[in-house]
Design a protein around this nucleic acid. Structure first.
Lengths: 227, 227
DNA sequence: CGCAACGTTGAAAACGTTCAATACAAGTGG
DNA sequence: CCACTTGTATTGAACGTTTTCAACGTTGCG
């Protein structure tokens, strides 16, 4: 961790709009703000490693945090990617457990950290915090289920198509957008080798998708849905 | 649902030893018991379907509950399998959300159901319940992460080997045990077609594993670990 | 300009799925 | 007790997909 500091006005506002704190009553927000510590992470900095005793809860203010598992022989598999406003789910470990995976900044990031023991203390007296944690975890479990089934049911081009569709406007009109992070990160999130992502993009070119750098243009969302 | 009833002595005891209720103080246990409804499910009965408004929390007393997602074209992918004592994670949905997947009894089962709205009411006054829900969800998220990374890092025989190792005694001695459910269920849980599971078992036969029906014998755990 | 990180492309191999056929087991009714 | 039926498990062969390894482009930054 590079710099540690109390949250300033900017950070307080970001935190307030973040998923977790936005569900809380004013008093619980104040209690959480009280114990928040803001940290500035350079790219590739670890937040925690799989198996370590969990002592901190993390919330992303800016940047992206990659959570992954390691093989005995060093290969990595991403299990989740958290962006601004997200609570890093793997760090919500109550009662002296251990982190179930490793978390690393995928790019320079700003995060808020909360001492887990103190979070527990607050939650034990303020049910809205405990409920907010449960709600957050519940939706993250839903996302994990979606990843799992997506992996098992769809091919690489299909997963990429679904990702693109979920990141552009809802209507059937053509649209463009910018990938929020590097392609290698996206590949990891989708459970693909970078090569497979590349090939998926080439294949989708035949279905009205054009990609240059991080810029994506979707010519025909309907066609994409049929891939 | 076949029969609905208030929990009797047998069910109360099972519930008490179950994961969720075992974390609660006596008063919260009483409050939960008060609203518990026991149901007897025939095999293949649905508990809920993906997308339905979530109104019940489910806890398995006996049998197994399979949670899966459906493709537009009818294919299924299992995302979790719950046994006695487990809270069905996909049904912990706070604040008027919808079930993220479908749940079905994999065999004749006994479950406890709790009205979600009343659970929320209790949790809003009793933090221990809210915390217990968060703890349950946190460990389920960890399991989901493990499945996801296992899928992505290991081949079918390796996943089966890991499953077998996790279900027999910890020491390095040979041991036997009975699969707790059908092989087709196990295949789904591991993200495999039944054929792939069958082939994985044949391959493991060359590494000291013998399978007859649901009976498994592990001749050399160490060899299995090296697969 | 040159280096380093990132991304793309190709070819070969490993892996898993699918479909179809067959074997096996358990439970039902004669 | 046996034949029949149904659900479950195994095996084979063909196919499709993804990984892997290696080489080649590209981009961005010092």
């Amino acid at each position: 961790m590079n710099r540690l500091m109390k949250p300033g006005a900017r950070e307080r506002e970001t935190l307030l709009n973040a998923g977790l704190l936005s569900m809380l009553g004013v008093e619980s927000v104040a209690a959480m703000m009280e114990i928040a510590v803001i940290g500035n992470l350079p790219a590739r900095q670890m937040l925690f490693r799989e198996g370590e005793p969990a002592d901190m809860l993390h919330c992303v203010l800016s940047g992206y945090i990659r959570v992954y598992k390691l093989d005995p022989d060093g290969r990595e598999a991403d299990v989740e990617l958290y962006g601004p406003g997200d609570v890093v789910g793997a760090s919500v470990v109550l009662e002296g457990g251990r982190y179930p995976a490793t978390a690393q900044a995928a790019e320079p990031s700003l995060i808020a950290r909360f001492d887990l023991k103190r979070v527990r203390d607050i939650a034990a007296r303020r049910p809205d915090l405990a409920m907010a944690l449960a709600t957050t975890l519940s939706s993250q479990l839903g996302r994990a289920f979606a990843s799992l089934s997506d992996d098992r049911l769809h091919t690489a081009p299909q997963r990429v198509a679904r990702y693109l569709l979920s990141h552009c406007s809802v209507d059937g009109k053509p649209s463009s957008f910018r990938l929020p992070y590097q392609k290698s990160l996206l590949a990891g999130k989708l459970g693909l080798a970078p090569e497979a992502l590349s090939r998926a993009f080439s294949l989708l070119r035949g279905h009205g998708v054009s990609v240059r750098g991080r810029l994506v243009h979707i010519g025909d969302p309907e066609a994409l849905r049929r891939v």
